[in-house]
Structure formats: C-alpha cells, structure tokens
C-alpha cells in the first residue's frame, strides 16, 4: 500500500491538519512504510482465518452503561470558560465560520 501526496492531503483535510509541500512528501513516504507493515493483516492466510471472527472493540464493556437520569453537579460557567482562548458573555467565541 502506497500513499500519494494527494492521499496525504486528503487525509490531512479530514483531520483538520495543514501540511506543507515538504511535509506532504515526507509523510507520504512515512505513512506508506507504516501501512506496508500493517498490510500483513491482509495476507491471504490471515484473512481466511478471520472469516466469521467477531471484532473486539473493548475489553470490559459488554453492554452500554447508563446512569440514572438525575440532576447532578456541574462546573460553574466561569470555571468552564476560564481556559478558553476567547470567550464572551458565557460563550466560547470563534472566528467567523464564513469569510466576509
């Protein structure tokens, strides 16, 4: 499995990362090597032995855990906002979603 610069750019966009031209080339090579290693999971013997095998996503949670729908304590708004890079009137402020 080999990743092109275009693939890297596509995945980076999905991950909300900006990669420079130089990084694209380097990452294409690095990620290709890691995925080539991971491609051992696609060997025919293994794929055959995986037929019908359930997935394991978690070790301890066999069913969804829910808590009672009861009112609990929450952090006060000023504490929640204390770490915000920008806040105004009990809200997180961000740059415009659309330009102009």
């Amino acid at each position: 499995m080999s990743l092109s610069r275009k693939d890297v750019l596509h995945v980076a966009t999905l991950a909300r990362l900006h990669v420079t031209d130089a990084e694209q080339e380097e990452l294409a090579q690095e990620l290709s090597r890691i995925l080539a290693y991971a491609a051992q999971l696609n060997t025919l013997d293994l794929v055959a032995s995986l037929a019908g095998v359930e997935v394991t996503s978690h070790m301890s949670v066999s069913s969804m855990v829910t808590r009672p729908d009861a009112q609990g304590e929450s952090l006060p708004p000023e504490v929640v906002l204390a770490n915000a890079p920008d806040a105004e009137e009990q809200q997180f402020r961000v740059p415009a979603v659309l330009e102009g």
């Binding site: 991971a38 999971l41 696609n42 032995s49 995986l50 095998v53 359930e54 997935v55 394991t56 996503s57």
Partner: peptide
C-alpha cells in the same frame, strides 16, 4: 475492522 478481528484472536 480487520485489526479488531485480530484483537479477538
């Protein structure tokens, strides 16, 4: 998905 199946094995 395949990695999660391997996890089972």
């Amino acid at each position: 998905k395949r990695a999660q199946q391997v996890r089972t094995l």
